[in-house]
Structure formats: structure tokens, C-alpha cells
Nucleic acid binder design. Structure first.
Length: 461
RNA sequence: GCGCCGGUGCCCGAGCGGACCAAGGGAACGGCCUGCAAAGCCGUAAAGCCGCGGGUUCAAAUCCCGCCCGGCGCUCCA
């Protein structure tokens, strides 16, 4: 049984699916106007892992993540660069997709763009208006928050508590009936992109976008809605209010991942610790896997730390998986063997960890525990080595941790093969000077040679 | 200010009432293996008594109270 922490109920509870065997998952995607940063990466990886694991458990998952391609920030950016909003959005959407690809994040099954769903949004707003839960001002259409029962449930705050702190950071529009009321539709300002509507030209508010696309694609009562925990209020609270306002059932489970700190504090341009995913990826080719390992080693609901030292240590750890994969390639031992209880134990522990609120840190601990056991198996020439190695690699793959296929890195390079065999010949002749010289040469080519009992093996790290 | 979440070894980070198990990763140290390395293994080796102070309990890192520190939210930010 799979359990997840649900923000609404405030407890870890069994995943109750709308339809047995099928999971509908909506995770809030990015507003495309700038470089994705490490926080985006953590969030995307979190839901990628959730999706992969559910699939690994045999469930059929429909993963939807939106692209917000119309927003104040996009408009500002377009204006400052003298370009059109669609141009800006398209540029950054492409960057985002490319970065996610490099991070090993599977493309969601659907990635709707907000601008392609405006008709549905207009219809949704009309329904809310007809239900008497919205009103119009010069600035747009607003949802009457007080008319929705349990509005603040997701943040666990009453309307009065919310009102008490409303405006702490932003001034309140005087035309609104209640400072908490939020925009469903924003009247167009001169020069801004706009769409026609019963309330005049304008554009949709942020929350109605996600509410329309999630319900439009996944249907009422879809299973999981996820996003960063900074979205709990107002974004998710407001999406939920929109659905409730027209009597529709919204997400059955709310999942929120925690934020990330760089060098001990929150990432911010003003603090000088702001890091884009591209910068991290360009620093070292293996940082994609290293970062994913770091994400996995911290529980998704806890603030995680990232810095260069941690990335470096994670790279080292990932290499142990590669080394194990190489041993497996060298000694696949495909012979049928009796049911290995050690493999069953590994799977049992792995599943138990993951089933309990996505316990990736413990799952990773299980993986590394078994890396050692598999190596011990290989060392003692037991069939258990290959069996465990395969299970370990499978478990790692379920978390999206790709392990290099050693057989791919060998083969196409006859020059390297030649150097390796010349070195081996020198070794056999106990000509250590020549052997070491050749090892240097290979090293310069980016090749590492390991002398194993069954002869030399080489790979590119 | 109000609300929520955290503070565990040199670093990161599990565990959240009880088997003396404080996982796992990195770093460091000592062995084994190796011509030397690399990779790998072993270590009753070194390293936490779990932010501070009270309390509850037969039993607390795990529950309660207070304090200190950090993070997030308080209208468009993952």
C-alpha cells in the first residue's frame, strides 16, 4: 500500500485512487521567462520520481505539468527586450525542456500551455460568475473568497487569520469587496496581450489556468496535485476555491515539496547564491545525476542543502553505481539460480521505504547497502553478486538514477584497446616503467584502466 | 507581527516512544587485494547521546512547555 503525506488532511495517508490502477498527477510547471534554477530542478525531479516509482509499482500514470506562457513577468521581459510575449515564452519553454531533459526528467505525458486553454478558462470563470461567487470591477473579475466554504483549509487558516495578515507584503486593491478576493480575469492594459471575454478583453489569472487545465485534462476528482510548498497559498488554495465555487471536486491528494538552500541560505539573486540549472550542469557532466542523488537523499518535504562540495561527493557516490554496473557487465552470470532471498529482502526494504511517503533517503540507503553486498558477492564469486547488482540497478532506475552502461563506453576505440594490451604485455614482462607510462597515456585520453583478476578493464569516467 | 516546518557526527542526511541499530552517502584513518595504483572488501578503528532549559513516562533523538537559531508563507515565487 502506497501512502503519501496530504497537505489538506495534514497526515500521511493511503493513496486512494479514483480508478484502481490508474494515477492522475498534476504538477505545477514553470512560468517561462528566465533560466530555470535549482529549485525548479528539485521540484521537477520530485514529481518525476513520484511518477517513475508509481509506474515501477505497476500503476498507469498520467502525468500533466503545465507551461505558464502568459504572465506579468513574461510581459515585462518582452517589453524590455522589444519582443513579443509569444517569442519570449517560446524561447524559455525550449530552454526549460532542454534542461529537464539533461536532468533526466521524463517529459510529462501532457504539457498544456496556458494560452491554448483560454476558452476553457473563460467558460470556467463564467460558471463561477453564474454561481454568484464572483464579481466584476474595473480591474477584472474577482472570486468572492468568503463564499467558498473551507477556503483556507489547505493552509489551515481561517478567513479572519488570513485577512489579518493580508497586505503584509502587497497593497490591497480598494475596489475589492474583501482583501482576500483574487483575480480570475484581468482586464487588459494598453499594449498587453489579451483575449476576448464576456467581461471585456483581458487575460486569465494565474490560478484559473491551473484549475482549468488540471480539471480539463484529468477530470474531476483527479488523484494528485503537486507543486512547491510555496504554492500552497495562495496558488493552490485559490485553484481549489475555484473548483469548489462551482461544486466540482478537486484533487484527492495534495503533495508539496520543500524548498532548497544554497550554501546554507535560501537561493536569491541578491545573496549571490542564485544558481541556474544550466550553470550547475555545465560545471560537470555528471552533475545531473549527482543533483538527483542529492534530491533523493533528502526527504522531499524537508528543505535541502546544495553546494559544490555536496555535488562533488554525490558524484563520487554515483560512480560506485557505475563501477557496479561494470562488474555486472563483466560477469553477467545469467545462469538461473535458486530464488535469492537477499534480492527479495532488498525489494521488500526498497518498497517499504518508498511506499511510506516517498521515503527516498531510506530507499537510497537500501540501494547502497546492496551495492556493498553485491560487490561482496562478486568478490567471493557467488552468483549473488550479479543477482543483487541487477536488482540494485533496477531500483536505482526506478528513482531515475541512470547508471552508465559500461559496454557502451568500450568497443569503438581500437587505439585504446591497443594501448591497454601493450600495457598488459609490459606488466606481464614486469616492465613497470613502460606499463606506467602507458597508463599515463591512457589517462591523458580520459581512460581509466582497472586490473582485475580476469584481466584489464577500461572505461571513461 | 501571524501561521507552518526544521535544528542529529567533520559535511549532507534517515530515524520521530522501547530491541543498546543513532541508517545511508561523502571526507578521514587502519588493514586486505595490487608491482604501484584504480576498483572492491573488511574494520569490536576514529567520529554524534540527537540546538538549550525544564517536564511527562518504567522507557525520549522521538511526546509536552519555554527559549535561541534557520527556512517558508502571508496575492501570482518551485
Amino acid at each position: 500500500m502506497i501512502s503519501l503525506y496530504d497537505t489538506l488532511s495534514g497526515e500521511v495517508r493511503p493513496l486512494e485512487l479514483r480508478e484502481p490502477g490508474q494515477v492522475s498527477l498534476y504538477a505545477c510547471g514553470p512560468t517561462v521567462y528566465d533560466h530555470p534554477h535549482l529549485g525548479h530542478a528539485r521540484s521537477a525531479i520530485t514529481y518525476d520520481v513520484l511518477r517513475r516509482y508509481l509506474q515501477w509499482r505497476g500503476l498507469q500514470v498520467c502525468h500533466v505539468a503545465n507551461i505558464t506562457d502568459i504572465d506579468d513577468k513574461i510581459i515585462d521581459r518582452a517589453r524590455s527586450q522589444g519582443r513579443s510575449e509569444p517569442e519570449v515564452a517560446a524561447e524559455w519553454e525550449a530552454v526549460y525542456r532542454n534542461v529537464m531533459d539533461r536532468l533526466g526528467v521524463l517529459p510529462p505525458h501532457q504539457q498544456p500551455r496556458a494560452t491554448e486553454w483560454v476558452d476553457a478558462m473563460v467558460a470556467f470563470i463564467a460558471a463561477i460568475t453564474e454561481a454568484g461567487k464572483a464579481y466584476t470591477t474595473a480591474a477584472g473579475v474577482y472570486l468572492r473568497v468568503g463564499s467558498v466554504d473551507g477556503y483556507g483549509d489547505l493552509v489551515k487558516r481561517s478567513l479572519d487569520e488570513l485577512r489579518a495578515s493580508a497586505g503584509a507584503r502587497v497593497e490591497v486593491d480598494e475596489d475589492k469587496e474583501d482583501p482576500l478576493d483574487f483575480a480570475l480575469w484581468k482586464a487588459a492594459k494598453p499594449g498587453e496581450p489579451s483575449w476576448p471575454s464576456p467581461w471585456g478583453a483581458g487575460r486569465p489569472g494565474w490560478h484559473i489556468e491551473c484549475a482549468s487545465m488540471s480539471l480539463g485534462i484529468l477530470g474531476d476528482g483527479f488523484d494528485i496535485h503537486g507543486g512547491g510548498n510555496d504554492l500552497v497559498f495562495p496558488h493552490h488554495t485559490n485553484e481549489r476555491a475555484e473548483a469548489l465555487a462551482v461544486g466540482r471536486t478537486f484533487a484527492r491528494h495534495w503533495v508539496h515539496n520543500a524548498m532548497l538552500n544554497v550554501d546554507g541560505t535560501k537561493m536569491a539573486k541578491s545573496l549571490g547564491n542564485y544558481r541556474t540549472v544550466e550553470d550547475m550542469l555545465n560545471e560537470h557532466p555528471d552533475n545531473a545525476r549527482a543533483f538527483r542523488l542529492l534530491v533523493l537523499q533528502t526527504h522531499y518535504r524537508k528543505t535541502m542543502e546544495v553546494n559544490s562540495e555536496l555535488l562533488a561527493s554525490a558524484r563520487t557516490a554515483v560512480q560506485r553505481l557505475d563501477a557496479l554496473a561494470r562488474r555486472l557487465t563483466a560477469d553477467p552470470n545469467t545462469q538461473p539460480v535458486p530464488e535469492a532471498s537477499s534480492v527479495a529482502e532488498l525489494l521488500r526494504r526498497f518498497r517499504a521505504a518508498m511506499d511510506h511517503d516517498l521515503g527516498t533517503p531510506e530507499a537510497i540507503a537500501v540501494v547502497f547497502d546492496n551495492v556493498r553486498k553485491a560487490n561482496t558477492g562478486f568478490d567471493s564469486a557467488s552468483a549473488e553478486g550479479a543477482l543483487l547488482a541487477r536488482a540494485v540497478l533496477d531500483a536505482a532506475a526506478a528513482l531515475g538514477l541512470a547508471v552508465e552502461d559500461a559496454s557502451q563506453s568500450v568497443g569503438d576505440d581500437a587505439g585504446v584497446e591497443e594501448l591497454v594490451s601493450r600495457r598488459q604485455a609490459a606488466r606481464e614482462a614486469k616492465d613497470w616503467a613502460t606499463a606506467d607510462e602507458l597508463r599515463e597515456e591512457l589517462s591523458a585520453l580520459g581512460v581509466v584502466v582497472e586490473d582485475t583478476p580476469s584481466g584489464p578493464k577500461w572505461h571513461r569516467p
